[in-house]
């Protein structure tokens, strides 16, 4: 049973949303419960249990503190990287791009769209959160973490396609995921050790076989869902064939 938190400072709106959430749980037959309904940051923090996987509905501006919702979301993200966060807010309070960079929330619900739309979105979000939380609880390493300067970044393991290095930019790792391309400083060896599910197919490529589509053992070319390819070194050829046939049998 995962908890749902609701933080909204307007009494009437809060009452409405709570109603919608309870409704959504019933409709989706979700393994979730509305654990906390609060109107101030202090009350929220009293109910809040760090590192608890859950679904959070947050208003952005709480009692004329424009950034209250954002600050709480940042804290939740830090404690529980995979927490499901949804903002319910008015349009101009929203710096969408900044939010996306800082929090990467699951959804934004705009108050301006009217109560029916809000109800609809809350129901949908409960369904998505239910699926995500269920998925994450099965595996222990769900995220790949990397660091730029003093900041940590993470990408869902399921989304990762490959990590690679380039000769002309030594010491830099490029990471390709289903919807993202990023870079940071590091060494592939460290990642090979820390993330054993990734496969080192040659000196400069570490790939996620879960996202591989085909392998041509003659040309030793491994293809991925995004149509990118990578050459497998002669030494790793046999190991890869074995891994792939095991995977097929499972």
């Amino acid at each position: 049973m995962f908890p749902i938190y609701l933080l909204e400072d307007n009494d009437i709106q809060r009452q409405k949303y709570a109603e919608f959430i309870k409704n959504g749980i019933l409709i989706n037959d979700a393994n979730l419960e509305l654990k906390s309904i609060t109107g101030t940051v202090e009350d929220f923090l009293q109910d809040y249990v760090p590192q608890e996987q859950g679904l959070y509905f947050l208003d952005m501006e709480i009692q004329s503190n424009k950034l209250a919702g954002l600050n709480i979301a940042e804290r939740i993200r830090k404690d529980t990287p995979l927490a499901q966060i949804v903002f319910i807010t008015t349009h101009d309070e929203l710096s969408l791009t900044t939010l996306e960079r800082k929090i990467a929330p699951m959804d934004y619900i705009l108050k301006d769209k009217g109560l029916d739309e809000i109800k609809h979105r809350i129901t949908d979000d409960i369904e998505t959160a239910q699926n995500n939380l269920h998925r994450y609880s099965h595996s222990s390493k769900n995220l790949l973490d990397y660091k730029i300067g003093s900041r940590y970044f993470s990408i869902l393991m399921d989304d990762i396609i490959m990590l690679y290095t380039q000769k002309d930019v030594p010491g830099r790792i490029f990471i390709v995921s289903k919807n993202q391309l990023a870079e940071f400083n590091g060494s592939l060896n460290t990642f090979e050790i820390n993330y054993p599910s990734l496969f080192r197919c040659n000196r400069s490529y570490l790939v996620n076989l879960e996202n591989a589509t085909t392998y041509d053992s003659h040309t030793r070319t491994l293809s991925f869902i995004d149509e990118s390819t990578c050459e497998v070194s002669f030494r790793k050829n046999k190991e890869l064939i074995k891994l792939l046939s095991n995977k097929k049998n499972v």
Binding site: R101, I148, G149, N179, L181, E183
Partner: peptide, 26 residues
């Protein structure tokens, strides 16, 4: 970016948007 050591580029496609982020360290 290759000419410097403290710049990083990240590209992400999400919610029907493309976000290109230049990360500057220091």
């Amino acid at each position: 970016i290759s000419e410097t050591d403290n710049l990083y580029l990240e590209t992400k496609v999400i919610h029907g948007h493309i976000m290109m982020t230049l990360i500057i360290v220091g």
